[in-house]
Design a protein around this nucleic acid. Structure first.
Lengths: 226, 226
DNA sequence: CGTTGCATTGAAATCCCTCAAGCGAGGTGG
DNA sequence: CCACCTCGCTTGAGGGATTTCAATGCAACG
């Protein structure tokens, strides 16, 4: 069981640096003023059990949300892609850590400011609920994958998900490493690699490079994902 | 891969039957009038992709929330125990089916009535969000279990969860079958059975009967659950 | 007291993991 | 500009945890 790569700590001073204007879009007609913030590849946005002071939205780049077991085994709970809201907690602490997979730009807002904006506005509060409910749905799908799907089904489901999240594109540009994918799918990097090779040999995909996947036969792929 | 047992369909007429008064408690000071409804063992409360017309709270008994793959593989997303809210959806359809594990009493409210009660009340809407967020946390924990824990760790985590949900009792009365547990933990009934036997041989638990577990050494168990 | 529905146990098989080696692209320094 | 290093990825061989298949056990119930 490989352990996770070390991750740089966030430079907290950045948050106090000259502010670049941005906004967080929680839903239709619900936009809040925010600050634009950049994170380098592998930089930590926040850590598990840290005080949940900020809420983020991905503007560009990609995040991974991870949880760990004591011995270093890691589960990637979700990937944060442009538009995704990250770190919206009910309690006072984050329940997972978030790290930039590539250089990433986020919109940041203080949680207290967000709470103030919605606490007397039922429609806005409903948007917050809708967001969390959508995350719940995603995670429930992932549970079915982790509990009952084969390695091949998991990898295919992952490729189709990445395609769908990129407007259904047939050419996928993966920001994350094999390790990230493995920890997302509950597999090892070797199994990910072998499965992709197998899909390539069956002409379902091609792999011009390790981070680029071409879905050559989406129908066949969809068939493989129970 | 064993397939799920057949399940009786709900007798929908029941909902129109003479109403027994009950209430649904969404949170501190947020209680809504509801109808009390009984379900027999293995009776379906609602089905996946059915129109999400009602929201339920378990009064007594137990539910299982399940999702299926096309070939019958099943994942139990959660167990519904007394107090749990079930079927609270944003969209128009349930995302999983719910069945009574044993004879169960539920409080039922029309979703439209619940929506009306909270749509202009930000504090009430927040309670709804808090509920969903709590479910998200549970499911995220389960993801880590399904993705990265061994069979022994899963079974131990399950026993400790059942204990915790029953006020930390050392004697657990399991309403669900080995099949339900297996589909919750992403294992097979045989592995559940063998693992419990192994725990019994190591004196961590005892099994007076298959549905009763005595946690004889909670500290040892906690140690086994990374 | 036979039937029925779980649960347990055993033996064999399998899917995925572990361990190990090799490859290739990108960066760095001589 | 090339040799070299590093890091991530791929591939192979072997092993192991869990599943599958099969038989037996056991308690509840008519």
């Amino acid at each position: 069981m490989q352990h996770a790569a070390t991750v740089q700590r966030t430079n907290r001073a950045e948050i106090a640096a000259p502010m670049a204007r941005a906004s967080i879009v929680l839903g239709r007609g619900l936009e809040l003023p925010a600050t634009r913030l950049n994170f380098a590849r592998n930089e930590e946005v926040f850590g598990e059990a840290e005080s949940a002071e900020y809420v983020y939205q991905v503007i560009s780049g990609a995040l991974r949300m991870t949880r760990f077991l004591a011995d270093g085994r890691r589960q990637v709970a979700a990937f944060g892609l442009p538009g995704d809201i990250v770190g919206l907690e009910v309690g006072d602490f984050y329940r997972y850590s978030a790290e930039a997979i590539v250089d990433t730009t986020l919109a940041v807002i203080k949680r207290s400011a967000l709470e103030r904006s919605v606490e007397h506005d039922a429609a806005a509060m409903r948007q917050v609920w809708v967001l969390t409910s959508g995350q719940l749905e995603d995670v429930q799908n992932q549970m079915l994958l982790l509990g009952r799907k084969t390695a091949m089904e998991r990898v295919v489901a992952f490729l189709l998900e990445m395609s769908r999240r990129n407007k259904g594109a047939h050419i996928i540009d993966l920001p994350m490493s094999r390790t990230d994918i493995a920890d997302y799918l509950g597999l090892t990097i070797e199994t990910i690699s072998r499965t992709l090779t197998q899909l390539q040999r069956s002409d379902a995909i091609s792999l011009p490079s390790s981070r680029h996947v071409v879905l050559r036969n989406k129908a066949a792929l969809a068939n493989m994902d129970s």
